[in-house]
Design a protein around this nucleic acid. Structure first.
Lengths: 130, 130
DNA sequence: ATGACTGCAAAGACTTTGCATCTTT
DNA sequence: AAAGATGCAAAGTCTTTGCAGTCAT
C-alpha cells in the first residue's frame, strides 16, 4: 500500500545515508545529514541502529577520531587517512597492507589475527594550504 | 633535603609507571598500578599528567580500546596487536609498515602524512585457548 | 493484535575542569 | 612568598537504555 512506500523505516534511511557518503560519519553527522529527509529522527535511533548494523557486520567502526566514533559502510579492509586539522577521514583503496605482516604478527605475538587497520594521520590538502 | 628525595612528585611516578610497563595502560590502569606506592594519588592527577605528557610528545596515545584511551611511553612508531577478548595490547617491534605506503598515501590522498598506526586485532594466545 | 521500531528523557561511562590546599624552590 | 602540583567534587561530552507510544504486518 501507499504507506509502506511513502514512509521508509528510519533504519533504512540510516544505512542508506552511510552507504551514500564517503565522509565516514559519526552518529551525530548521520543525524544531521538525515534532518533534511527525516526531520523528526532521534539521535538515539541513530545510535541504536548504528550499533545494530555493526553487530550484524553490515558496517564497521573506524574507531574514534577526537573521541568520537566514526562509521563506514564499506566493511572490506582498507586503509584510511585522518586529517588532524579538520578530522576528515579519507579512503585509500589503492593501498594494501602486505599480507605477510599478518602471518608475522601471529608468529611474534602468538595470537590469532582477525582484522587489521592501517591509518595514516596528517594534514589533508585543504588543511595543509591554510 | 630529605623531603624531596623521599617524596617524588606524582608526575614522575606516572611517567615511570608508563615506562616500566608493556601493558599500554589506560588512565585508570595507571591509577591502580600506582596505588601501592602512592595510595593517595587522585585519578584526576593521572588524567591531567597523561594529557600533559602527551602534549609534550613524551608519550603517545594508541587511541581507544572499547571506548577507553590507552597510552604508550614508546613514542617511536610501531605496530600493535589488540586482543578483542581481554583488551590486551601487545607491541610488535619486529614488524614495520613499508615506507612506500606513506608516499603512496600522500600521492593518492593529496595530503601530508605525519604519522601512521597499524593495529592488528584478534585473539591473543590466552584468549584463543579458552 | 503482535512484534518491531522510535522519541524522549534519564542514566552511564569516561574525561576534564574549578578551586582551595599543599609542595617545592 | 611565588609558582606549580594535587585532591576533591562538580561539570562536560559522547553514548546507552527504560519506557511508553507508534508503525508495519
Amino acid at each position: 500500500m501507499e504507506g509502506s512506500t511513502k514512509q521508509f523505516r528510519k533504519r533504512n534511511a540510516i544505512l542508506a545515508c552511510l552507504q551514500q557518503t564517503h565522509a565516514h560519519p559519526s552518529a551525530e553527522m548521520v543525524h544531521e545529514m538525515l534532518q533534511k529527509t527525516h526531520p523528526d529522527i532521534s539521535l538515539a535511533t541513530v545510535y541504536r541502529n548504528l550499533a545494530w548494523f555493526k553487530s550484524q557486520g553490515m558496517i564497521q567502526s573506524l574507531g574514534t577520531v577526537n573521541g568520537i566514533e566514526r562509521f563506514d559502510a564499506n566493511t572490506a579492509p582498507h586503509v584510511h587517512f585522518v586529517c588532524t586539522g579538520c578530522s576528515a577521514v579519507i579512503d585509500l583503496p589503492q593501498i594494501a597492507v602486505p599480507h605477510s605482516l599478518e602471518a608475522d604478527t601471529e608468529k611474534y605475538a602468538g595470537c590469532r589475527v582477525q582484522g587489521c587497520q592501517l591509518t595514516f594521520t596528517g594534514l589533508c590538502g585543504s588543511c595543509a594550504n591554510s
